[in-house]
Design a protein around this nucleic acid. Structure first.
Length: 213
DNA sequence: CCCGGGATTCCCT
DNA sequence: GGGAATCCCGGGT
């Protein structure tokens, strides 16, 4: 028998801790995303920590701007950014206001509403690829900048709710270098994933692009 | 499977 | 101006 995931919401205090504690603790949790067409649920399998102003890999490293304002606010809210001209990615803000830490949601398993996720991810050959990678995850859940700042610890009809789910035992948590991060920010092993999970995204070291003239 | 190149727009310098 | 917390497709092995 496998115990059913715990559908109690996580409290805001869960996120009001050092980001390196929160990130591995998020593995196995259930994110509910309520779309106009119905709910989609995701079991988190891969995340990355970004440690505020101390972290050269963080969007908060150079201080507060219009884009990253939500990172400097209270924990438990969602920071959504747009990147590479095409994609959105989402984070949970961690630590007290001003800390500007966050956890990037890199991959997960769709456990409810797969038919809704498939409509947004037409290139996915298998369901395990629906949310395999941070931009794929955001696409599958219908997340864009309009949801920047949404509260994942708010009322039960909100766009997001994060549930206790089934936390992953420490001996099944793996860690390694962050994906896609360049320069000094690449050295930290702040990517966390569930051992042997088929929905975890493949590691690709950062490769600088040439520019066309 | 692995690797390399192109897409496409916003943000900060 | 130039890079970006990425993805997809095509070609080779």
């Amino acid at each position: 028998m496998i115990a059913a995931p715990d559908r109690t919401p996580l409290s805001r205090d869960f996120f009001d801790r050092p980001v390196l504690e929160v990130a591995p603790d998020l593995l196995g949790r259930t994110l509910v995303r309520r779309t106009p067409d119905g709910p989609i649920e995701l079991r988190l399998t891969e995340v990355e920590a970004y440690d505020g102003a101390n972290d050269p890999g963080s969007h908060a490293f150079r201080g507060q701007t219009a884009r990253n304002t939500v990172m400097f606010g209270p924990p438990g809210h969602v920071y959504v950014y747009f990147t590479y001209g095409m994609w959105h990615c989402m984070n949970f803000v961690c630590g007290p206001p001003g800390q500007a830490s966050g956890v990037l949601l890199r991959a997960g398993e769709i456990t409810e509403g797969a038919e809704l996720a498939r409509k947004r991810r037409l290139s996915a050959r298998y369901d395990k690829e629906l949310a395999k990678g941070p931009a794929r995850l955001a696409t599958a859940l219908g997340v864009d900048r309009a949801l920047d700042g949404a509260d994942a610890c708010g009322p039960p009809d909100s766009p997001f709710t994060i549930l206790r789910g089934t936390p992953v035992p420490a001996d099944q948590v793996r860690k390694g270098p962050r994906t896609g991060v360049s320069g000094d920010g690449a050295v930290h092993p702040w990517r966390f994933w569930v051992a042997d999970d088929p929905t975890v995204s493949p590691y690709r070291a950062h490769t600088p692009r040439r520019r066309s003239t």
